[in-house]
Design a protein around this nucleic acid. Sequence first.
DNA 1: CCATTAAATGGCC
DNA 2: GGCCATTTAATGG
Length: 198
Amino acid sequence: MLIDEQLLLSYGAELEDLRPSYVIFEENSVPKYYYQIVKGRIKLNHYNEDGKELILAILNKGLSVCELLLFIDETYPVNAIAFEETTVLKLPKNDFVRLLDENQQISRDINKFLSERLYYKYIMLENNTSLRPEVRIKGALGYQKSFSNDQSKYSFEVPLTRQQIASITALRVETVIRTIKKLEKAGFLKIINRKIYI
DNA sequence: CCATTAAATGGCC
DNA sequence: GGCCATTTAATGG
């Protein structure tokens, strides 16, 4: 995890259980808390003019949620929604700042985490602006697998539906379905009971 | 068993 | 590549 849970609790963080689809914060709202995922997953999304969903990130347990907003004076550019049954630790901004001031190592950890996410954003942007759907999908799936300990071929079951992959890559479901089948023929992935293994 | 949701297909622009 | 209609499969009560 990013920050030790006991440490967060000692600074006044509170545990919160969230139902699937629970909205943690909304786009354009003012950031007031540091959030860290204890259990479950959270997605960051945005709805475009046509009402289509664009998924900016899917955050796994142990990670913080849009902490960058606590360092600048802006409102949230995305919505944060519980992807499944999720538990978060929630620490008021003031207490978070105090925690950082009093713990240099944590401050460095946050820097590193922030850097990793920014780095990943570059990679994803490169993939997601490709005109070829297989590049976008490979990028999205590869990123998901990067969280897995087992990097051997076909060992990772992708925890996303075709529609979700479409929302991440800004493609249509049909295109995702067809491209994934093509990638299966090419040996890049396997489909077992409709689940994708990469 | 039926209703709902996801996946898959084919036709068309 | 997207859009639409339709079929098929999986899931849950």
